[in-house]
Simulated assay, not measured.
Amino acid sequence: MEALFDPFEVVFVQRALWGGVLVSLICALAGTWVVLRGMAFLGDAMSHGMLPGVAVASLLGGSLFVGAALAAVAMALGVTALNRSPRLSQDTSIGLLFVGMLSAGVIIVSHSGSFAVDLTGFLFGDVLAVRERDLLLLALALLAALVIAVGGHRSFVALAFDPRKATTLGLAPRAAHAAMLGLVTLAVVASFHVVGTLLVFGLLIAPPAAAAIWARSIPAIMVGAALLGSASTFVGLLVSWHWGTAAGASISATAVALFFVSVASSRVRPLLGALRRTRAADAPPAPIHAHERSNVS
């Protein structure tokens, strides 16, 4: 038991745990809709599209968080604008902006020879460097995500399952899509400092996908994703502490591993049920006792 809890007696590991839990809650709210609407490519593109803003902010000595937020908002607005074109599919517009933003970021980075360390932190994060100010920002981001998720829930449900019905009911599917895009943007921007842009995708997709296999309602998927994401944070930090691995990567790898465990369990469960039914059918009938015979007669 000491091996499980000793690492969390260290202050910076405690902050990392709280930071990972807050990120898991934010990603559960946004990632559920990403999974249900099939927007995984958008989540990946959003995480990489922040690179130009982060690069400019680093070169100017400004806040990386603000730079990432501005780049992500520009990406979201670009996706929304291009989606209005009837000749461009959503994947095409996302792909074009993804490549354009990433290329611009690489060009900016190539002009600075001292940006390599910051770029590594951007890609892979540094969950063990979470400060109290970061926890406050994550808490505020979680509050904002809750407001968006609760306020737009009805519109999000209609948009995810029947966009035509959303139009019929007057739920403004375009506005709902923009709000959902804002929720995903918020999750990516708030999380990149903790687990990095390459790894935030794991917490955004894996826990909701794992929970969706078992849950029968959208709130249940969100709760399950939050629990799985928090568990991934706890286990990932333990693995990082005892094995000396990268903390952010360990958290995301654990989340992905839990997804595959969930998939395997869902495949095994029907087989076990069929095996139990077969055994019950093949079992000999129970013997009839004397008093039962008299009752029958």
Results as ranks from 00 to 15, higher is better:
I148V: 15
A166F: 01
V54E: 00
S110D: 13
A166K: 05
P270V: 11
A206L: 09
A264C: 11
S265C: 13
I107R: 08
A71M: 10
P287H: 03
A257V: 07
L36D: 04
A249V: 05
P208F: 01
F41L: 15
R15I: 04
W241C: 09
A247N: 04
G19Y: 00
L123D: 02
V54C: 04
M39C: 05
M101L: 15
A76L: 10
G62F: 07
S297H: 08
A212R: 14
P173E: 07
I205A: 11
M101A: 15
S230M: 08
P208A: 11
V296A: 15
T168D: 10
A290P: 00
A264P: 00
L36H: 02
S63W: 05
R154E: 12
G151F: 03
A231W: 04
V263Y: 08
S230T: 03
M39H: 07
V109F: 07
L143S: 14
D6N: 09
V200T: 10
L42N: 02
V157Y: 00
L186D: 09
A129Y: 01
S58T: 06
A129Q: 09
S114I: 03
I288E: 11
H193C: 08
H242M: 13
S63C: 14
A290G: 10
F5I: 14
W243I: 11
L237E: 01
A176L: 10
L136Q: 08
A40F: 03
P173W: 05
R276Q: 14
G244A: 12
G53S: 06
W18Q: 08
A160S: 15
R84S: 11
A225W: 02
V35G: 07
R154Y: 04
P52T: 05
W33L: 12
A179P: 02
L228G: 05
F201N: 09
R269F: 11
A226V: 01
V66Q: 11
L169V: 07
T197D: 05
L275D: 08
L238S: 06
H153P: 03
L159P: 05
P207L: 09
L4Q: 06
L204T: 05
T168S: 14
R154N: 09
L142H: 05
